[in-house]
């Protein structure tokens, strides 16, 4: 494979082209969230982002207080950035492949709170367990 090393690879320079506009969009979305509780979501996968763009976003948004890991259909990381109300959400598949990456502007991403029907199903299960215990079963 030595010969492969001789092939010159010239990666194109990639300035941060889209991050400044994204930061403006996030600021506007935060305004809307404060004024009218309106949620906003930016799909990062659909935008051409260079490494420099990503660095600029990371740097401007910083790291926040909450890091959550969701384990259903593979892992997902939900992190609040240093700007409260801006969440960096990454969903991966069971094989660890990144499915979608987005910035959510909201109090809490919709995927986080427990759903009413899921609570009801869980409660039913808990009641069954309590009943089994009360009847001396396992």
């Amino acid at each position: 494979m030595k010969i492969l090393d001789t092939i010159p690879i010239r990666p194109a320079p990639s300035p941060a082209a889209n991050a400044p506009a994204l930061l403006q969009e996030i600021a506007a979305a935060l305004d809307a969230l404060l004024l009218s509780r309106q949620r906003h979501c930016i799909d990062l996968g659909s935008l051409p982002l260079s490494p420099a763009d990503r660095d600029m976003l990371r740097e401007a948004l910083g790291t926040g207080e909450i890091h959550m890991e969701l384990t259903t259909l593979g892992n997902s990381r939900i992190e609040e950035t240093g700007v409260p109300g801006v969440w960096w959400v990454r969903h991966s598949s069971e094989d660890g492949i990144l499915l979608t990456e987005s910035l959510e502007v909201c109090h809490v991403p919709e995927i986080v709170p427990a759903d009413t029907t899921d609570i009801a199903i869980g409660l039913q299960r808990l009641r069954q367990r309590i009943a089994v215990r009360a009847s001396g079963g396992q």
Partner: peptide, 26 residues
């Protein structure tokens, strides 16, 4: 739910598919 998945899994599936289809996140 029959397959033991929560609404969260369902929302995740929808988010991933929306992104794949290049639809707006909303």
């Amino acid at each position: 739910r029959q397959n033991g998945l929560s609404r969260r899994a369902f929302l995740k599936f929808c988010a991933a598919t929306t992104s794949l289809l290049a639809l707006p996140p909303a």
